[in-house]
């Protein structure tokens, strides 16, 4: 996105909002973190004021930071013994609905992420709104500002349980009628909780607990041995040809 002039957008954001936003630029993408209480004021200004003109809502999505940066396979500390076998951990592919972790601790676990686009000025911005209460995550709804946020917020509510205060019609959207739980949370099992089948005796569709076993084929690994730096160095000096 080379055509977008990020520096000037960042300067304009800093001049207009000051401490209300903490702005970061990575790979030419502008991310601004905003507290829920300031969101409506910031969003309205971003839509209406000259220099921003973010008229198009691109996306709103939830994110659950539970387990961020945790690996299942210890690749750092192995000294005398070998590495672990990569079967530990509580990743979402490893437990059933009954065994799901119930007491989870994570500061500022949920956030809503909003992507905006300005067609007039050809610029994009990402707003991250962290939810303050993990047990009851609440974010003000931006549906009154961009009607297109309606379904995106319903989706984030459905999948993550984030409440959008002021949303006109906050119902589930993607999951089944009568579904229990918020499936994209990291403490929701990957295999799900219920399955359906047609029961010929009762002559109707019945819901039952899932019958499949949880399994993980590839453990989650974080290698801090600068894999990619090495890769870049290797591709840079063409060691294979020498």
């Amino acid at each position: 996105m080379s055509v977008i002039n990020e520096t000037s957008l960042v300067e304009r954001l800093a001049a207009r909002f000051g401490d209300m936003l903490s702005v970061k630029v990575q790979r030419n993408e502008v991310t601004a973190e905003v507290a829920p209480r300031d969101l409506i004021a910031v969003a309205t200004a971003l839509r209406d004021e000259a220099g921003f003109r973010f008229g198009t809502i691109i996306d709103v999505c939830g994110i659950d930071y539970l387990g961020y940066g945790k690996a299942e396979w210890d690749t750092d500390t192995a000294q005398g013994e070998s590495f672990s076998r990569g079967v530990e951990g509580q990743a979402m592919g490893r437990f059933t609905w009954e065994e799901r972790p119930r007491q989870v601790e994570q500061q500022r676990r949920f956030a809503a992420v909003i992507h905006l686009l300005s067609i007039e000025l050809n610029q994009r911005i990402r707003l991250r709104v962290p939810c303050e209460d993990d047990a009851f995550p609440v974010v003000p709804s931006i549906t009154p500002i961009w009607p297109g946020a309606d379904w995106f917020e319903r989706e984030a509510f459905d999948l993550f349980g984030i409440i959008f205060e002021g949303h006109p019609d906050l119902r589930r959207i993607l999951t089944d009628y009568g579904f229990v739980g918020h499936p994209f949370r990291k403490d929701f099992p990957l295999i799900g909780n219920v399955e359906v089948r047609y029961d010929p005796e009762q002559k109707r569709v019945v819901y039952e607990p899932v019958s499949i076993e949880p399994r993980v084929l590839v453990p989650r690994t974080i290698r801090n041995d600068a894999d990619l730096d090495q890769a870049r160095a290797e591709s840079a000096d063409h060691w294979r040809e020498n």
Binding site: I57, I58, D59, C61, I63, D64, Y68, G69, A71, V113, H115, G148, D150, W151, F152, E155, V218, R220, T221, I222, R223, N224
Partner: peptide
């Protein structure tokens, strides 16, 4: 930093249109 994505969200045009 892992070998799996932490979060993938796919912004589908049809979803916004249908809403």
């Amino acid at each position: 930093g892992a070998n799996k994505p932490f979060r993938v969200h796919l912004r589908a045009p049809g979803f916004a249109h249908l809403s």
